[in-house]
Design a protein around this nucleic acid. Structure first.
Length: 151
DNA sequence: GCCAACGTTGGC
DNA sequence: GCCAACGTTGGC
């Protein structure tokens, strides 16, 4: 999120960035592309849930393969904001819908991310177990650069 | 398959 | 409200 202050004007700019983890052997990027869209459900962790709730339509989300691959492979886009998780009747939990936005030219590995001092504070490094996490504008730009993507 | 990190649960 | 025990995630 970014608030721009310009003279007498304060206006809201742009979108939030996120990262979600998917175990490719359960649900891979390739399968996601094949499906055309997916709903992200089954999250049972409050921190992750709070991030899902904050997501807005149009936000971009790094798709990270955990366990196997351990790399960011693509970008998803939020197409439906948080709603009751259909896999439970407990009201605490939500689901969010994504569609594939684009595959990264070059996947960015966890090893590369850990090796870059500028990314030392990234949640992916600091909070290893968090499955839905925010990505700052700066972190997003650095990862995109590593992926060989134009800003 | 091991284990560190961390979230959750439950006894007190 | 503390903290030990336990379960889960995820890197290696």
């Amino acid at each position: 999120m970014c608030w721009l202050v310009d003279g007498n004007f304060i206006y809201f700019h742009g979108m939030n960035y996120w990262l979600i983890k998917s175990e490719p052997f359960k649900y891979s990027w390739e399968q996601f592309v094949k499906d055309g869209q997916t709903f992200w459900d089954g999250v049972r962790n409050y921190a992750a849930r709070n991030h899902l709730r904050t997501m807005k339509k149009g936000d971009l989300v790094f798709w990270y393969h955990s366990n196997e691959g351990t790399e960011i492979v693509g970008i998803a886009k939020v197409i439906k904001e948080a709603y009751q998780d259909p896999t439970t009747t407990e009201e605490a939990w939500v689901a969010v819908d994504f569609k594939p936005h684009k595959k990264l030219k070059k996947p960015v590995t966890l090893v590369q991310i850990k090796a870059d001092k500028r990314l030392a504070n990234m949640a992916l490094v600091r909070l290893g177990r968090l499955s839905v996490q925010p990505v700052t504008d700066a972190e997003w730009a650095i990862v995109m650069e590593m992926a060989g993507e134009k800003p």
